[in-house]
Amino acid sequence: MLAKRIIPCLDVKAGRVVKGINFEGLRDAGDPVEIARRYDEQGADEITFLDITASSDERDIIIHVVEQVAEQVFIPLTVGGGVRVVDDVRRLLNAGADKVSMNTAAVQNPQLVADASGKVGSQCIVVAIDAKQSGEGRWEVFTHGGRKGTGLDAVEWARRVQQLGAGEILLTSMDRDGTRIGFDLKLTRAISDAVDIPVIASGGVGSLAHLAEGVLEGHADAVLAASIFHYGEHTVREAKEFMRARGIEVRL
C-alpha cells in the first residue's frame, strides 16, 4: 500500500535556509545541502524548498541550490516561490527539481497550470493553495503569502486546478500557519475529498499527533511541516514511528 508521506519544508532566502535549524553536529546551520542531507538520512519522503528571496536579481541562486542538493540527495525535491512562467518551471526541473509549486501566478493566470503541465507533465506541477476560513465550511483562496484575498472558493479552486492539469495540491491553512495548534482538519478533508489528485496538508503542525490527524481525519496523502523538525524537537523518523503506531502506512 502507498505510504503517507512526511515532507520537511525549508524556507530559502538568497541561497540560505532561514528558519532556525537545530541538528546536532551540523556546523553550518543555514546550508540547504547539508540540511537536506540530514532530512534524507532521517527518512524524509521528499523535501520542499520554498524560495522566499525578495529581489529578482537573486532569483537564480535557488537554481544553484537545487543543482547542489540534487547531486547528493536522491529523494524527490519540490521547489516553490516566485514561479511566474513556464520557463521558470523548466529551469527548476532541469536543475534537478522533481516538482515545481506555483501559487499566486496560478491564480493570476490559470492557463499557466495548463501550459506547464502540458509541457512537462502533470506529475511535475504542484499548485499551492493558501486558504483562510470565510464562513462555516467555507474557505477563501489567498495569494501574495496570505496578504491578498481572491474571492475564490478553495474547494472550487482545488477542483479547477486538477482540471487544468495540476498533479498535486499543497494546501496551507493561513489561519493555522505558525500557530502550532494543528492543521485545519475540516479544510484539509474538504479539499482531499473533493479531488482525485494527492493533497499535502500544511500549516499549524506543533506535535506528532497533529501529523497523524492530518492523515486520519484530514484525509491528506502527505503532511508537510517545518518547525517541529527544524528546531530538533522531533526527527522525521520519530514522526514516522508515531504515525505507524497510529496505524498509518509509512516508509520506515
Binding site: M1, L2, A3, K4, R5, D45, S122, Q123, G167, E168, D193, D196, I197, P198, V199, H219, D221, A222, R251
Partner: peptide, 22 residues
C-alpha cells in the same frame, strides 16, 4: 481505472499514484 481506485479502508485512492509503495 477510476472505479478501482478504492483503498482497503474504503477511502479514495489518488491518481497520479504518487509516493513510496512496496
Amino acid at each position: 481505472p477510476h472505479e478501482l481506485m478504492v483503498g482497503p479502508d474504503g477511502g479514495r485512492l489518488k491518481v497520479p499514484h504518487m509516493g513510496w509503495n512496496e
